[in-house]
Write a protein that binds this DNA or RNA. Structure first.
Lengths: 190, 190
DNA sequence: GTCTATACAGCGATAGAC
DNA sequence: GTCTATCGCTGTATAGAC
């Protein structure tokens, strides 16, 4: 089923875990090789450069995120769809905390070799959020700003998830989902 | 008025601009020196190490952010206070876009020398958000989770602001403020 | 396809003149 | 207080044996 050799998979996983802890620049190809249980030469055989390795890693990760959010939306519309999407996003964050932290650090950078491809995927995720937002019939003057609304809803969930994992890991998924949705539910504006 | 020598200020500013574009690890002390118009030795005279330089930079930045948010809250309570704080935060992001990007990348990292001091300041900012949130009389079962709610509201604003600066810089502060507050106003849950 | 060994550059930090 | 010069280490990437 895996479309890659075991070595390639092992390298990707090692790179992900190390970079979540030490940042991408703080992760050396030597570290990755050690952790994956192979020699540095093998890393360079499987990935032409460090940039390529992390590009592949990030694109795969955002792809998984997009699919999860999309399938959570699937049959629902409007607010119930948004609730399901936020929960799915938080679940993904919890299951891939390394990826989530990496993504948070990379998503607004403009200096990376992989930035163009990453931005494309980012827009895909935001697009998934725009769909149910539009279904809540926003006023006409918000039309051109739905991407900003979606970005901030996405940010609320991602930041809430990271706050959870990094600073309050004792909380349950349910509690965190409720907390994030509480902020979006309008009860703050009551 | 500045409590530091001109050289120290110039170094801090150069470091901030460079790190926003290239990341902290991607910024060398040589780069900083060049941009500040001094020699590398002078950088090391003013800051004992690279870590110290960036610690000072980040702490000063978060301090400014905290003060801005606090003074925006000042005389207000509840939802109006939150609105004012979000707007103030977005204004600060716009005026210090380099700092905002740097902060977004650093705030969830756990591998930095300055992480403990940064986390303290982070809690201060969140504390400012918790005050008006509590004033909206959340149900008792949310009591222990207000930090998560605050974190996600803060994240909504910060992410919305970065989305703005990095991907939709043609929007106005008013439009972005409205967009972020739209997500928090409950109109998505209507 | 995986290994070891190494070239080569870049960076943080220090020494010491002025 | 600022400079130039340099040390020592680390990291990316490659060469070539197996």
């Amino acid at each position: 089923m895996p479309r890659q050799s075991g070595t390639k998979r092992a390298i990707l996983e090692a790179a992900l875990e190390l970079a979540a802890d030490n940042g991408i620049t703080g992760t050396t190809m030597e570290n990755v090789a050690e952790r994956a249980g192979v020699a540095k030469g093998s890393v360079y055989y499987n990935f032409t450069s460090k940039d390529r390795l992390f590009e592949e890693l990030l694109l795969e990760g955002v792809g998984v995120l997009t699919e999860t959010v999309r399938s959570a939306r699937s049959a629902l519309t409007g607010w119930p769809a948004l609730q399901a999407m936020v929960r799915a996003l938080l679940e993904t964050v919890a299951d891939n905390r390394a990826l989530a932290r990496l993504l948070a650090a990379e998503i607004f950078r403009t200096d990376r070799a992989w930035q163009p491809s990453l931005e494309l995927l980012r827009r895909e995720v935001l697009g998934e959020f725009i769909i149910p937002i539009r279904e809540t019939s926003p006023p006409a003057e918000m039309d051109g700003r739905l991407e900003l609304v979606a970005g901030s809803v996405f940010g609320a969930a991602l930041t809430g998830g990271l706050e959870w994992l990094v600073f309050s890991p004792e909380r349950s998924l349910d509690e965190v989902t409720e907390s994030v949705l509480y902020g979006l539910s309008g009860r703050l504006a009551a």
